[in-house]
Structure formats: C-alpha cells, structure tokens
C-alpha cells in the first residue's frame, strides 16, 4: 500500500480567513493538526478532490506545474484574500488524465495562467501543505458524476500513483451538512443550522470513526438528501475509492459549524 495518509477537510474559507472567530478557529486548529499528521506520514504527493471545483464536461485535472496568485472568495470576500502557491505533480496528473479511459470517464488537463482555482482547494492546500513543499494532483468535482463514479475516480488515481511508485496522501475537500444561514448572524455564536443536521453529522462521523463502511454506504444517500450534504458528500467517496473501500478507523480532529453548515476534519486510520 502506497497510501500513507488520508484526510477529509472542509472547503469553506472561513476557518482560514477568520480563525480569530472561535467556532471557526477550532476548525482551523483541527486542520493544522491534520497538516502535521500529513507531514509526519512523509508522502511524495497529495491527491486532492475538492467539492467546490466544478466541471461539467470532462473530468478536469490541474496540469500546470505551478499555480500561484491571489483568490477572493465570491461569498466571503469581506474577510480578505486567499493567496496561494501550489506545485503540481504534472507527471502523475497527466497519467491520471490518460488512465480515466480505463473507467470510462473522459478527462482533460487544465494548464492555463489565471485559471480560477476554487476556495476549497486553496484552503485545504494551505492547511495541509503550509510550506507548499509537497506537489499536488488536483481533481475537479464533475457535477454529473455520481458518488459511484467519484469512488472509481479516487480508486483509479490511487492505482496510478501506485504504478508510478508514489507515496500518497489522499485528501477529500468538502463539508458535511450543507444548510447555511440565509441571514446575517452573530458569527461568534455560529452553530449548525438545525438540530437534525447536527444529529446527521454526528451519526456519519461516528460511523466513519468506527470504519463501518457497510452502514455508511447504506446511510450516506439519506444523509446527502436530508442534511443537504455538500455535493452529495462525493469528497468522501473519493477517499473511499482511493482506500479501496477499506479503512480501520478515523480520528475527528474538529467538528463544528461554518455559517450553519457542518465542517469536520477527519484523519483516517489506514
């Protein structure tokens, strides 16, 4: 097994932009703990899938060697900018583009100056790869892909990395329950939008910690629907696919609200 670490982290920029707000600061601290755990596992590359990077035609993969710039979130611009400087493992990314044909998915690489990176990819790479030392392979969320297709993509990406002899950290970027507050709130007392959402999030995190994949497979579709899980929780299926449907437990480094939606930082035991 060449996968040395796996993480689920939230894509909301709020913990990154405003960690001095205590509820968001807790999530930021959890992300930093996950970053230290990732570094300790000494991967060669991070395979990252972000729920916020949308594709609608082919599956997209970053193939530009270096992505650097300043991004401003389209919702949370008032809290500041998101500078980024990311290296891409282009060899592995190109290999992933070529290999998706194996699973019947059309892919293409994107290599354009000024390509709009999503907040989730930027925030996750900031927390998990703070020095920018590790190269990334970044995959988009094709809105037409099912959870099953996403699982197959994750599995394929891990296999290609294995063929290339890489030590890999798998990262799924996205949230849990997806309801955000529709009106201004006092951010200091941010909370999960509803009791039902909170219960759902805790139930899913409990199943993940117990590595009960069978129960997760049964319950996730209902979670996705009833708790409006971020993008059908496909970021979890990416991780599940890469881990070939098997892990031994998980540690939740943080769980809490980001403007009402659910965010968790989870480290998988593999």
């Amino acid at each position: 097994m060449t996968i040395v670490a796996a993480f689920l982290v939230p894509g909301s920029p709020l913990p990154r932009l405003k960690p001095d707000n205590i509820p968001w600061g807790r999530i930021a601290a959890g992300c930093q703990r996950a970053g230290r755990a990732l570094a300790a596992a000494r991967p060669d590359v991070i395979l990252m899938y972000s729920s916020q990077w949308f594709a609608v035609l082919d599956e997209l993969w970053q193939t530009r060697p270096r992505l650097a710039g300043v991004h401003v979130d389209e919702n949370w611009y008032e809290y500041g900018d998101l500078p980024y400087d990311i290296k891409v493992d282009t060899e592995l990314a190109h290999a992933c583009v070529a290999a998706t044909r194996r699973i019947g998915v059309a892919s293409r690489g994107v290599n354009y100056d000024g390509f709009p990176l999503d907040s989730g990819s930027i925030v996750a790479s900031h927390f998990l790869n703070p020095e920018g030392a590790l190269p990334l392979v970044m995959a988009a969320n094709n809105l037409y892909h099912s959870a099953e297709t996403t699982e197959r993509l994750g599995r394929m990406a891990a296999e290609v990395a294995h063929e290339q002899g890489r030590r890999v950290a798998i990262v799924g970027v996205g949230g849990l329950s997806g309801s955000i507050f529709r009106e201004e709130i006092d951010i200091r007392s941010d909370r999960i939008a509803s009791h039902e959402d909170d219960r759902w999030n805790r139930r899913i995190l409990d199943l993940v910690e117990r590595a009960d994949v069978a129960a997760l497979r049964t319950e996730l579709p209902q979670f996705a629907k009833e708790a409006r899980a971020d993008m059908g929780f496909k970021h979890f299926y990416w991780i599940l696919g890469a881990l070939q449907g098997k892990f031994y437990g998980a540690r939740t480094h943080a769980y809490g609200p980001v403007y009402g939606s659910g965010a968790a930082v989870v480290e998988f035991t593999i």
């Binding site: 949308f54 354009y112 100056d113 507050f181 403007y259």
Partner: peptide, 30 residues
C-alpha cells in the same frame, strides 16, 4: 455565475481589472 448564498451582492469597487478565465471552457475564454 456570481452565486451568493447570503443575500444579494453588488460590486462596490470603482475599478476592477484582471484576467477572467472560464472554469468550464478555459480553452476558449481567457
């Protein structure tokens, strides 16, 4: 394609400039 969750937003900076790359059709629009 400026999707906001918390209300309706308005551009409020006198001059805005940059390069706009279409995330779906970057091959066509930069």
């Amino acid at each position: 394609h400026w999707i906001t969750q918390l209300g309706h937003h308005f551009l409020g900076v006198r001059t805005l400039r940059g390069k706009s790359v279409d995330p779906i059709f970057p091959n066509l629009f930069r």
